[in-house]
Design a protein around this nucleic acid. Structure first.
Lengths: 319, 319
DNA sequence: GTGAAAGCGCTAACAT
DNA sequence: ATGTTAGCGCTTTCAC
């Protein structure tokens, strides 16, 4: 029908005809059926973002940035919460392959390097995060090593000699283990001896975990004058836990986090932290994905992008 | 084809046939095409959640709860960020009417009571929030009046006599104005005189706004010994601003917020607040929506649900 | 500049 | 228990 031409703003429609059509559409309260259009076009105009949870300062920010970036490419975003479970991550993958989505941005937390092959498919996928490197897909990663090294150095430069590394579970390759490597390098750079007692693992990466562990460390008599936490949530929890235990930050113990979450600026004391280039990474991820969506020939070249970062100095490390 | 019966687990398929089909599917790496299924079924299995932003403690939590609740109904959730602009809210509405979504949960921040009629359509919509009452759709609202009254009373019971009400812009009907009414009632209940100087409006509802206004109030010489903030973000900002100005909370000024955001428990001092029944409200919203989606006859009866709440006492009002 | 025909991949309804 | 037919509403192609 000519109707279709009108709807899609095709040029070769006479003015009078166009207006007649528009009038009829208005009169009948006509709406294009998106499902039919999707079927015909083989595109849905929607991508899926799979993240462990929306409701965390870090992933919330990630989601917001990605939605905004996707909008610029005229893509909508459907969010799937995976809780960091490999099953749900695979589920997101399979929904996307079912052409429910034009592509998938998967922030891996559950799947490991071993699952890399399962990502292989002729369907656009971008991996976000620190668990699958060199996989058969494009990948956007944090500057883990360099940033952790810089954060630890920051504490050392401020006089810390016994720096705790507070992290989640350490697998072969993941956020915590990559950051641990940076921490170790910084100690080495400064000629400080590593001490296994200073490497503290907790079950989760939330404020509650940080608060509890900080209290335990203070009460156990562990000697430490600095804490590098792998997330800001953990770090804010630590500040809270230290306060509970009567330890003053930054006088007695200096604390630095990672993520530069909005809250960190307003916490008391305000939190020094690593500020990764969230926006740049999110944009790059959407960019990689749209490029894959648009490309017709499958290619075996896969992109890897590591974001930039800066260290933000605030009260928790002495201003 | 029998294939369809296999895929959809229809009962009348012989075991051998089913397995032959499954084998062939595996061999060909067959995937059902979701777009075609959507077209045929007239359902997409996806609902849209339109909120101002995902990246805020409050809306993030709302989004998380709704996604989880929707999952239980086998619905996926696509998120649209509206920035609180009426245009984008209308856009979400129209995408949903285009049958891109089975229904819409719209957290209104931009549209006002005047736009209520535009919601009228034969398509499932649930309104969340404090701006459109008695509209032609189901509605889930906060217990604004009662909860604000209780929060203000809490401060008064703890000895406050000059309680600031800190809010965003006051329109005819919105979160701030509804909560203001509760605040006024509590003052009246206690026989305290209202003072216009104690009603403080700020541009946004974030931590930055709260911090800045708190510093201004402290420096201006305004006399006050309590602050009721319409959001926790605002309240945490106030705590920060008071600290900057050298005012001790809760000794000199007590502060209470609204939302019981995760961070409030760990802030220093931890924040007393109103805990609305977020989960209950989110579930009810999804519930209303699925009921509309399933119903065949259009009905003119529209549901209204007001959530429950409790007051959480923490350090910022003296423990 | 307009319209007719075909088909995207699926499933509901109806044979067999 | 399996196969056949038809059609969801759109857009692409091609004829006029």
């Amino acid at each position: 029908m000519t109707v279709s031409n009108v709807i899609n703003d095709h040029p070769h429609v006479r003015r009078a005809t166009r207006e007649k059509v528009l009038e009829a559409m208005a009169r009948l309260d006509y709406r294009v059926n998106a499902a039919a259009r999707n079927l015909r076009k083989g595109r849905t105009g929607t991508i899926c973002l799979a993240i462990p949870q929306v409701n965390s300062p870090y992933y919330g920010r990630l989601a917001a940035t990605i939605i905004t970036a996707a909008e610029r490419h005229n893509l909508r975003v459907s969010i799937k919460q995976t809780d960091g479970s490999p099953e749900k991550e695979m589920e997101a993958l399979s929904l996307s392959r079912n052409r429910l989505y034009d592509g998938l941005i998967l922030s891996v937390a559950g799947m490991g390097q071993a699952d890399a092959e399962r990502l292989k498919a002729d369907h656009p996928v971008v991996i976000l995060g620190d668990r699958i490197f060199g996989g058969p897909v494009d990948h956007v990663a944090m500057p883990n090593l360099d940033a952790s090294r810089a954060a630890t150095r920051h504490l050392i430069n401020r006089g810390c000699r016994r720096v705790v590394f507070l992290c989640g579970s350490l697998e072969e390759v993941d956020t915590s283990s990559l950051r641990l490597a940076g921490y170790r390098l910084a100690l080495e750079d400064a000629g400080l001896p590593p001490d296994p007692a200073l490497i503290q693992q907790v079950g989760g990466l939330g404020m509650r975990d940080g608060a509890q562990r900080a209290r335990e460390m203070a009460e156990s008599g562990l000697e430490f004058d600095g804490v590098f936490c792998v997330t800001d949530s953990l770090a804010m929890g630590v500040l809270r836990g230290l306060a509970d235990a009567g330890v003053r930050a930054p006088d007695q113990v200096k604390v630095i986090g990672f993520d530069n979450v909005e809250e960190s600026e307003f916490f008391i004391p305000s939190l020094s932290t690593v500020d990764p280039d969230h926006d740049g990474m999110a944009e790059r991820a959407v960019d990689f994905l749209t490029r894959r969506i648009e490309q017709t020939e499958p290619s075996t070249r896969h992109e890897e992008f590591v974001g930039g970062f800066s260290v933000v100095t605030r009260e928790s490390t002495g201003g």
